[in-house]
C-alpha cells in the first residue's frame, strides 16, 4: 500500500535513483527466476573447464571447480534478497519494538536504551564477528546476526521518532478519548512511522549486503557451498591474477546493488515527512 504509493513520487525527477530502482527490480527478478534463467547448475563441477574465460556458453566464465559463474551469480542474487529481507525483518521487528516501547514507557526505556547504547559502542563488523563465532554457519544464523547488529541503530532511530510522536496533540487526543496503551502505540503511533521505517529498511538492506559479503569473505558467513556473491569473492580471491573476472563480476554486483539501495533510500528519505528527516541517516 503505502510502499507502492511512495515509490513513484520519491523517484520522480531523480534519474540516478530510478536507475538504481530498476537495477534492484532486475536483481529481484534474477533471484525469483534463477532456476529458470540459469543455464547451468550452480553447484555442478566441470574440472575440464576450469577457469574458462567469459564467452559462450559460460557468459561470466567458470571458477576453479569449473562451475558456471553466471549461474552462480544468479543464485547469488537469490541469497542477496533472502539475506537482505531477512535482516530487515529481524532488525525492524526487534529494534523497532525496543525503540517504540522504550520511548513510550519511559522507565522501561531508561533500562533498554542503555543496553542498546552499550551494544552500539561496538563496531558493526566486530559485533557480527563475536556473535557469529557463537553460532554455526548457516543462512538463518547469518540473518539473525546481521539483523541484531542493525536492530541497535533501528531502536535508536525509532526511539527518537516515537518520542516526538508521543507528544503530538493527536496522541493527547487519543489519550483523552480513553484509548489503551496498545491502541495508542499500534493504531496512532505506528502508522505514522511506516514511511520512515521504509527508508530505514532500505538502508539496512544495503548495509546487510556489505556485512554479509564481509562475513562470507572472512569465511564466517554462509556455508562455503552456498552460492553467494561474498562466497564467490572469498573463494576465487587467489585467482585474482589468472582469472580476474571471477572477482570482477561478484564485486561489481555487490557494489551496484548496495549503491542502488542507498540511492533509493536517499530518494525515499528526501520524500518523507520533514519532521523525521533529521532522525534518519545511513546506518
Amino acid at each position: 500500500m503505502s510502499v507502492l504509493k511512495l515509490m513513484p513520487s520519491a523517484l520522480a525527477g531523480r534519474k540516478l535513483a530510478t536507475i538504481g530502482f530498476l537495477w534492484l527490480v532486475l536483481v529481484l527478478l534474477a533471484a525469483v527466476f534463477a532456476g529458470v534463467i540459469a543455464p547451468f547448475d550452480p553447484l555442478e563441477l566441470d574440472p575440464v573447464n576450469r577457469l574458462a574465460e567469459p564467452g559462450w556458453p559460460h557468459l561470466f566464465g567458470t571458477d576453479h571447480f569449473g562451475r558456471d559463474t553466471f549461474s552462480r551469480a544468479l543464485y547469488g542474487a537469490r541469497m542477496t534478497v533472502i539475506i537482505g529481507v531477512g535482516s530487515v525483518v529481524v532488525a525492524l521487528l526487534s529494534g523497532g519494538l525496543i525503540g517504540m516501547l522504550s520511548a513510550y514507557f519511559t522507565k522501561l526505556g531508561h533500562f533498554l536504551m542503555r543496553g542498546v547504547d552499550v551494544l552500539m559502542a561496538f563496531p558493526a563488523l566486530l559485533m557480527a564477528l563475536v556473535l557469529i563465532t557463537l553460532l554455526e554457519r548457516s543462512v538463518a544464523n547469518t540473518i539473525i546476526v546481521i539483523g541484531i547488529v542493525y536492530a541497535t541503530t533501528t531502536a535508536r532511530i525509532l526511539y527518537g521518532m516515537t518520542l516526538k510522536l508521543k507528544n503530538e496533540v493527536f496522541v493527547d487526543a487519543a489519550v483523552c478519548s480513553g484509548a489503551s496503551h496498545r491502541s495508542i502505540l499500534f493504531r496512532h503511533i505506528l502508522p505514522n512511522l511506516i514511511s520512515p521505517l521504509l527508508v530505514q529498511a532500505s538502508f539496512i538492506f544495503a548495509f546487510a549486503q556489505l556485512q554479509a559479503a564481509a562475513l562470507d569473505f572472512l569465511g564466517l558467513g554462509l556455508p562455503p557451498e552456498v552460492p553467494s556473491w561474498g562466497n564467490m569473492l572469498s573463494e576465487e580471491r587467489i585467482y585474482l591474477t589468472r582469472a580476474p573476472w571471477l572477482l570482477l563480476y561478484p564485486g561489481l554486483l555487490i557494489i551496484l546493488s548496495v549503491f542502488s539501495m542507498n540511492l533509493v533510500g536517499d530518494a525515499l528519505r528526501d520524500n518523507i515527512d520533514p519532521r523525521f528527516k533529521d532522525d534518519i541517516s545511513g546506518v
Binding site: 496533540v169 493527536f170 493527547d172 487526543a173 483523552c176 496512532h188 505514522n192
Partner: peptide, 13 residues
C-alpha cells in the same frame, strides 16, 4: 477536551 491546533489534533493516518 477540545485542542487548539486543528492540524495537529487529528491523526493524519
Amino acid at each position: 477536551m477540545i485542542f487548539q491546533d486543528p492540524f495537529a489534533s487529528l491523526n493524519p493516518r
